Amino acid sequence: MFKRVLLKLSGEFLSDDSGFGINPDTTRQLAQLIISALDGTEVELAVVIGGGNLWRGARNGKGMDPATADYIGMLGTVMNAMALQDAMEAAGKPTRVMSAIAMQAVAEPYIRRRAIRHLEKDRVVIFGGGNGAPFFTTDTTSTLRALEIGADVVLMAKNKVDGVYDKDPQKHADAVRFDELTHMDVVEQRLAVMDATALTLCMDKGLPIVVFDIFQEGNLRRLFEGQRVGTLISTPGAGTAAQG
């Protein structure tokens, strides 16, 4: 069973069917899903949420300085983190938003030891602002934060995709799902799991990844209880180098 978990969420999970913006009802539903899955467990949960529902540098930042476009996207992740925090606390779950970009009026600065202490006090820690530097995705942020806080696993939440397939299951009816893969399998087969930087870091440090459908009823709860869900990506015999 996992004791400490890093959950990677897409910013689109907070939006309506358009995939854009923050929908309060959708956000409350996501918050309740997470809280219900945690209820009665001893799992310590940290969250990294993307900003694609508000800003995508490749799409929205055309003609802009790339670093500036990335910083705007990083600010979008703080907005999403605040929205998720509001929904979770309205449902009674204590949380802390920690930002890699200093904005102390709305979020705590990211300090590793403080983040760990929040987790030990049963607070959900939501990391915003990326890792504080441009040119890195929230996949990489998820891996970095997971290693820093000593997480047992990175849970890559998906919508309507229940694991890793050999090809896009929404386009190919004969797509085959994998129950287990090694990190090197993902690299060699060029499977779309996370960006190359994040995947390489997970492989180097022996950090397991689980890709799963968060909206399939009971999936997140089953993962917290140590059951097999989705696709497990690991390297047998490897252990993380992170220290809690």
Results as ranks from 00 to 15, higher is better:
D25R: 15
T41S: 15
F178L: 02
K167R: 15
Q104F: 10
D168Y: 06
M98Y: 01
R4N: 00
I126S: 10
R56N: 11
R113T: 13
G57W: 08
L9H: 04
V186R: 11
G92Q: 06
V186I: 09
D213M: 04
Q170H: 15
K167P: 01
V97Q: 08
S142V: 02
V210Y: 10
K8W: 05
T141V: 13
R228V: 13
G130V: 05
D39I: 00
L54N: 08
L220S: 11
V48D: 11
G57V: 02
A67Y: 00
V164F: 05
P66Q: 08
I116N: 08
G244N: 14
T182Q: 03
T182N: 06
T77H: 02
V211M: 14
D213E: 04
Q170G: 12
G128S: 03
M88S: 09
T140A: 12
D162N: 11
S15W: 09
V161E: 13
T137P: 11
V164I: 14
I111G: 08
L207F: 06
K205L: 13
L220I: 11
M82W: 10
R114S: 13
F224L: 13
V5I: 15
P94E: 05
E108R: 10
G92T: 04
S18K: 15
T26P: 00
V186T: 08
E44S: 10
G73P: 04
G40N: 11
G226C: 02
F224T: 09
L201T: 09
T240H: 14
A151M: 05
V43Q: 05
